[in-house]
Amino acid sequence: MSDLNDLHKTPLHALHLELGARMVPFAGYAMPVQYPAGLMAEHHHTRSAAGLFDVSHMGQLTLSGPDAAAAFESLMPVDVIGLGVNKQRYGLLLNDQGGIIDDLMFVNRGSDIFVIVNGACKDGDLAHIQARIGGRCTVTPQFDRALLALQGPQAVTALARLLPGVEQLVFMTGMPATWNGGDLYITRSGYTGEDGFEISLPADRADAFARALLAQTEVKPIGLGARNSLRLEAGLCLYGNDIDVTTTPVEAALNWAMQKVRRTGGERAGGFPGSDLVLAQLDGTQALTRKRVGLIALERVPVREHTELQDLQGETIGEITSGLLGPSADKPVAIGYVKPEFAAVGSRIQALVRGKAVPMEVAPMPFVPNRYFRG
């Protein structure tokens, strides 16, 4: 484990220490894993009220110029050109083998495309994007900006006191705003399955803005521990665990993230890195060897990442990539990969936990219903 003093610090580092956070290394940063209330309380508070997450370790960048949308679209199996102004979309940066370099969020802001990538991947992503399309558009890293996530059913009430107008946003849309002279950009999105917002803002405004949010009765600080349990219950992938460069979007059951215009017929279908393999997997001409599924343990035994999955005869058929006792689901939930013949909902398999076979069932995701605000 690296010395915390050697790690990058977010603009809210001093605030985390003041709030009693337990800090851990994550994506090269010292990050709060939990506060004194603890993971379970933080998880339930986010589901019932509003939780404030510091996600400033994430990478922010902009793509600008008249060809930016078409250039960015050439890197992903995703419709960028057709995205309306202030609309947001989930994207997948692929390598030439169809493997996932990173998953990301992007917004068409009219003047530019605003992209948020994973913290551990941001330097590699930036280099990849600049190498592939840097001659077609201007790629500007904004790694010095802060990023906060306010998540939960009361997030809109709390945020609207500081930024009137945010209540008009719906899921996966955004808007610019100003606060104390700083330029903000807010999207109604997040990584918890709850309604909520992500707020990009200048680093020198982050501490004051976070304190203004925490002064609202609905809001409490939430660490990485609860962020992980919330996203797992929502069935959302964690890059590096559930998806990586060895995984294609089809294996990862992310077909929904590839719009029809990029998949079938027409001049914009295909043409992205690894498209021959990905499209062949989509139409069934290339058979899958594994598929991502949701799993529920039928005994109250948490089944963690890297746990072997077997058929009922004890033959290896896959592996868990994320797993824990879901605080809201109130049962052990997991994400993993299995051979395709075991991927159907209701399939019975087993996990080998410390030498003991734990019965598992393939289950639909999310494990807890999403509550995104769609208007």
Rank of each mutant, 00 (worst) to 15 (best):
G265A: 15
L279W: 07
Q281P: 06
A280H: 03
L254D: 08
G274M: 03
A252R: 04
S275F: 13
L277C: 07
Q259G: 10
G271F: 01
Q281M: 10
G284C: 05
L277E: 02
V278Y: 06
L282H: 08
L254R: 11
G284K: 01
L277G: 07
A253C: 12
A252C: 08
L279E: 12
A257Q: 12
D283W: 08
Q286K: 15
R263Y: 01
A253P: 00
M258V: 07
G284W: 00
K260N: 04
N255G: 14
G284Q: 00
N255A: 15
G274H: 05
A280D: 09
D276T: 15
R263C: 15
L254N: 09
A280P: 05
L282A: 10
S275L: 00
G265M: 09
P273Y: 03
Q286A: 15
Q259M: 10
L282W: 11
M258A: 07
F272L: 04
G271Y: 03
A280Q: 13
Q259I: 00
A253M: 07
A269H: 07
V278H: 06
P273D: 05
R268Y: 13
W256S: 15
A269S: 14
T264L: 12
T285C: 01
V278M: 06
Q259K: 11
N255W: 03
G284S: 04
L279T: 05
Q259H: 15
A252F: 09
G284Y: 01
L279I: 04
L279A: 06
G266E: 09
E267T: 14
A269W: 06
G266S: 14
G266A: 11
R268K: 14
M258G: 01
L254Y: 10
P273T: 03
